[in-house]
Every structure is written in C-alpha cells, then in structure tokens.
C-alpha cells in the first residue's frame, strides 16, 4: 500500500474514533436504544400499573421502545440490585414504591441511595387509618376504645417492612396508643379481616379504599395529611391532632447512581413531560391518586427519601 492510502486510512480511522466517542457523550442522542423498566413489584399491583401506564407515554416522548420486566422478589430488592449493576447509561429504569426505603431500613434490601439515584417521584398517595364504621363510627370513638383497652387493639397491614408498618409505628409512637400490628401477605386478606370484624383496623392508601367507602363496608377515619382532603371534609387529619405524620406510599423512578447527570436530567425532563400530560393526569384521577401532588424532581425526591430513611430506621430500632 502506498503511503498516501495509509494516511487516508489512518485519518479516516481516527475521525471515526473521535466522532463516535464524541457521540457517546452527546446526550441529545439519548436514548441510544430501547429502554428497560424493572418493576420492583408483582404484576397487577399499583407499582406495576404505574410502570405500564408510563410506558407508552415515555415511548412517545423519547421515541424509543420499552420492555417491562417484573422482579417482585424480596420486596423488589432484586430489581434494585439489577438496576444498580446495570450499565450506567440511563437505559435501565427501576420503578419502585416507598418499599425501597422501608425494606432498606429493615435490612432486607441491600441496595440503597448510594447505588441508586432517584430521577423523579410521580405519585404520592395518602395514607389513612381504615376501620369498619359499624365498630368505630369515627376517630374519636376509635381513640377512646384504644385508650381504654391498651394492647387489645389490632391493626393490620401488608408485610413487616412496608409503608403500612411504618405508618403504624409512627402513629403508635406519636399518639402513645398501645396497639398490636399483624402483617399479612396481601392487601385482600387485611381488608377481609377488617370487614369480617376480626381485626380493628388497617392502614392503607386512600386510592384503594374508595369503593368500600361507597358501600359502607369500610371507612377511613384518619388521614395522614396536613389538611383535610377536599373530597372528604369529614375525616380528621393527623396534623390537627397534633401529630406530624404525613407520609404515604410514594412511587418513583430510579437509575444507577453512576449515570451521568446529563442523562439523569434528560430523563427527569422526559418524565415531567409525561407527568404534565393530560393522559397521565386522567390516569391519576381514574385510580384516585390525585389527592396529593405527586411530582418531585430528582434532588427534592432524594432529600425526602433520605429523611424517610432516617425516620424508618429510628422507628424500627425502637421495636
């Protein structure tokens, strides 16, 4: 080969290399391929619905294909672990609920906020105390009964290291009431026990209890919020009772902590577009998640998560 062709070949090669490395850092090319949603929950549940609803919307916004994989094992710990070990290019997204932090505080989930970066929170559900209205017509009645019968009042919830249990622990801690908590495997079992009169109450999200409210089988008597919900002005709040308890179950999206900031920002913006869309807002209304503003950006969400983590750790240590 002549020297001229060598030089041309060499130059072309170098150009290609330089060009492709430049492209790799150019986030206007994000996403470079299909995305993967890892759902830290089983199919059919709230988090799964959330992921599958966002999927087509994000596909449109980012002009890419998305596959959804459910990894419910260990309260979602497997999903968190896989995301933390995935390529830090923002193509693997972890859809999780507050269970990430609760199981982290309980030691079941080894993957924490040092390995995962929160991109955004999109749902904030309102936690409520739910009882059989025939037994306790309102919160005052419940409180009176609990004070008169220490240790005899039984509250149910799902799983031992969950938002339900955190709600119970923080409520018991703040109110000083002596109650017992029984964890069940599914929300259905808890509801059945409340309706059957076998336990005194349960902690649950307001979104899941609405149909029971209409039929009168179950009723929330206390909401964990700063102000009374506009649709339910009769239900007192924790705050007006003097307890600063406003946490509910939240759902958001996480990526590998090593993902470059530019990509995280790109994702955050894309998700905000989805959140603000008419379609998404309608979905929230349909599943009754619109009682509280869901959106929190990456920095704010991280801060909230860290606060929650400290709180849950403290509560669990006290048991």
């Amino acid at each position: 080969m002549s020297i001229k062709s060598c030089l041309i070949a060499g130059a072309t090669g170098l150009t290609l290399i330089w060009g492709s490395s430049a492209m790799a850092e150019d986030t206007s090319d994000f996403p470079a391929g299909p995305l993967q949603f890892l759902v830290a929950a089983g199919a059919g549940g709230g988090t799964d619905n959330f992921a599958r609803t966002v999927k087509p919307m994000l596909e449109k916004t980012l002009d890419t294909r998305i596959t959804v994989i459910n990894l419910p094992s260990a309260s979602g710990a497997l999903a968190h672990q896989r995301t933390a070990n995935s390529k830090a290019d923002g193509h693997t997204l972890d859809f999780a609920s507050s269970t990430l932090v609760t199981s982290l505080a309980a030691g079941q989930n080894p993957t924490g906020l040092d390995q995962l970066t929160p991109v955004a929170r999109m749902q904030s559900d309102v936690m409520t105390l739910i009882v059989d209205p025939d037994k306790y017509p309102d919160f005052a009645a419940f409180k009176a009964h609990a004070e008169a019968n220490p240790g005899k009042v039984i509250i149910g919830g799902t799983h031992a290291a969950s938002p339900d249990r955190m709600a119970f622990l923080s409520f018991a801690d703040a109110s000083g009431l002596d109650m017992t908590f029984i964890p069940y495997d599914e929300e259905g079992s808890v509801a059945a026990n409340v309706m059957g009169g076998n336990i005194d109450g349960m902690f649950g999200e307001i979104s899941s209890v609405l149909s029971y409210m209409e039929s009168g089988e179950m009723m929330p008597i206390l909401v964990f919020a700063e102000e009374r919900l506009s649709n339910f002005p009769d239900i007192p709040t924790t705050v007006e009772n003097g307890w600063d308890l406003t946490d509910g179950n939240e759902r958001g999206i996480f990526v590998n902590a090593e993902t470059p900031d530019t990509i995280v920002d790109a994702l955050e913006n894309a998700l905000k577009t989805v959140y603000d869309s008419e379609e998404y807002q309608q979905y929230e209304e349909r599943v009754n998640l619109h009682y509280r503003e869901g959106w929190l950006g990456s920095t704010d969400y991280r801060q909230k998560l860290e606060e929650n983590y400290e709180l849950y750790k403290r509560l669990l240590e006290n048991t």
Binding site: G44, G188, L210, S211, Y212, S215, E217, R286, V287
Partner: peptide, 17 residues
C-alpha cells in the same frame, strides 16, 4: 390477584358495589 390489577388498570374498582 393479577386479574384484580387488570380491573384497576381499566379504571374499574371491584368491591361490594
């Protein structure tokens, strides 16, 4: 349980009513 999830996705709430 999964079918229940499907109901919720369609905006239906199985319950007493």
């Amino acid at each position: 349980a999964i079918i229940l999830g499907a109901f919720i996705m369609h905006g239906l709430q199985p319950g007493p009513l």
